[in-house]
Design a protein around this nucleic acid. Structure first.
Lengths: 337, 337
DNA sequence: CTGTTAGCGCATTCAT
DNA sequence: ATGAATGCGCTAACAG
């Protein structure tokens, strides 16, 4: 009938030692004689004793808990990053306090309070974008409250006050565009979003660089993220524009484009070569399968959590901005090279 | 220079009251004279005081934190449920401790320990399936440690020891099959998974009921969840089977099927009518758009969190098993009715 | 190597 | 309506 109510005193009593020894047996095993340690651990097992996290946190001023701030969990990239984060967090014995931010920024202060109150040891911020205001918000948390923060897949200009982990989106944009150029495409469009995300901005930069290098005229089309709106948008384009290559900033946008193209009897990839960004499940559910930049989302999550553990332990980290390797997956939506 | 270090003592000192009054001003405002309350709250504001969650938890034995257990966050349904959970949790001031379970069950004991140690007030379990062993595990947590639990979108036979929130999958399977029957389809297949998920089992039951009612021979094909494997599987089917209707247990499976069908020059929906289950983004990215059962995933998350708050507050809940309304979305992959 | 002691910051009696 | 005192369960010096 281990009611989970056993305290360290109960263990101490049953093992005929003081509570300090029990505490050591758990936290500093090497500081206690092997045989008494064994005995204590056995009693712990028998009583089903679990140290109370509150008492522990109160006494030690550490929570072995990290806060993870995310917008909208339903974004595939965010969710997959969480898997990476959770796996590494487990390895280092950290618990995860999850905060899903509302769109309105009004509740940020409230979230901050909670985070402070929860005494988290560190914090991960996951997002495609970050506003100046939000960045200042994070800096405040970091400086004023001394809470280590790491950005996961979040780019903020060239500032490095806060360590970040992502891929080189500019380079990826450059490379995928180069691939189109190598196919001999002349009218390569980048399909980006109306809303300015910093990552998409970088992809655009890479695209522009590649186009310039190839002496081709860059053309950026901006669409909303919504499927229904995209469709109309794309249809108009087919009326009035000549296009033989499309680099979309997201897989889903690329798939939308392919759908519209095909219903207009345009052949993919013969007439138009199309590629996406991310390598989500969409890319393999589309016909033809989508060529795209392969972003190691899981790894970004995992590495950023790993970096956070280092920062929390005051370890030196080599670089403030970590860029993981990306790849390019060639599938049927582009020509064989 | 609010370093976030202010304690209740600092507030008490600055407001010229005792710490007990500060505590009351926060937790039992009605028990303190309005003017001193105002003064205390003002000081709290000025000092940027945030009550330490550990001390609070230790003293009150409550954490205002709930544990959320999920397998694999990258499943679209899980992620979307999290959004619903988080929104309601915020309303009721609960924090979320997230645990992403590994596939191997070896770490369940460890997770349990963490949950106990964290002193969570309640727990949400999200999954498509649950094994007997896992159910016993949850029951143990509930009974032995008195932790309220609610199952989100998780069905376990007819047992009601643990409250659950989901939709009536059997009925949904029945209805979507009826729709095919109403179209006049004769050879309606259900495409389910090799692995036995309890929810898919229910969908199959509903399918069987509808087929029996229509005097049609039921045919269940089982495929793996993996896209590449599906493709071969489906191709074989086209060689040897006559089929004019397909009810898939998941949208992604339906989309896979459509892809294979089309590359075999089968017309959707003229030759084969296809529908999925869930109404994910896939359904609108597919061509033709997918007809499917619309599962209110966000609501399932939200309602289950709401139910959990009730259980935690010892409020009576009307039913142990809550079934939310589902819908059926008709799109291009089936004939207009 | 082990025991004693003193808080950690707050909620909660019990007095006043 | 408010203050003083006690304890929640644990860690971390400090002794021994």
């Amino acid at each position: 009938m281990t009611k989970g109510k056993a305290t360290i005193y109960d263990v101490a009593g049953a093992a005929h030692v003081s509570l300090a020894t029990v505490s050591r047996a758990i936290n500093n095993p090497e500081k206690v004689k092997p045989e008494t340690r064994e005995r204590v651990l056995r009693v712990i097992e028998e009583l089903g004793y679990k140290p109370n996290a509150f008492a522990k946190g109160l006494a030690s001023r550490k929570s072995t808990t990290v806060a993870v701030l995310v917008p909208d969990m339903s974004r595939a990239s965010i969710a997959e990053m969480m898997n990476g984060i959770a796996d590494i967090a487990r390895v280092y014995k950290y618990s995860i306090l999850l905060y899903i931010l509302d769109n309105d920024e009004s509740n940020e202060e409230e979230v901050l309070k909670e985070i402070i109150a929860a005494q988290v040891d560190g914090m991960l911020y996951l997002n495609d974008e970050i506003t100046d205001k939000q960045y200042e918000f994070l800096l405040k948390i970091k400086n004023e409250y001394q809470i280590p923060i790491v950005l996961s897949n979040t780019i903020y200009h060239e500032r490095e006050d806060i360590p970040s982990v992502s891929i080189d989106y500019e380079q990826a944009g450059y490379e995928i565009t180069k691939k189109m150029v190598a196919e001999g495409r002349q009218n390569i469009y980048m399909v980006s979003t109306v809303r300015k995300y910093m990552v998409n901005d970088l992809k655009e930069k890479g695209y522009l660089r590649a186009m310039k290098e190839a002496n081709l005229a860059p053309q950026i089309m901006r669409t909303s993220g919504r499927i229904s709106v995209n469709t109309e948008h794309f249809n108009e384009y087919f009326e009035s524009h000549k296009v033989d290559g499309v680099v979309a900033v997201r897989d889903s946008i690329a798939v939308s484009f392919i759908n519209v193209a095909r219903s207009n009897h345009v052949k993919i990839p013969e007439d138009i070569s199309v590629c996406g960004f991310q390598n989500t499940k969409y890319s393999r559910l589309a016909r033809p399968n989508l060529t795209c930049v392969d972003v190691p989302i899981y790894d970004i999550g995992a590495v950023s959590m790993r970096v956070l553990t280092k920062v929390m332990n005051q370890e030196e980290i080599e670089e403030r901005t970590i860029m993981l390797e990306h790849g390019i997956v060639s599938r049927g939506s582009t020509l064989k090279s």
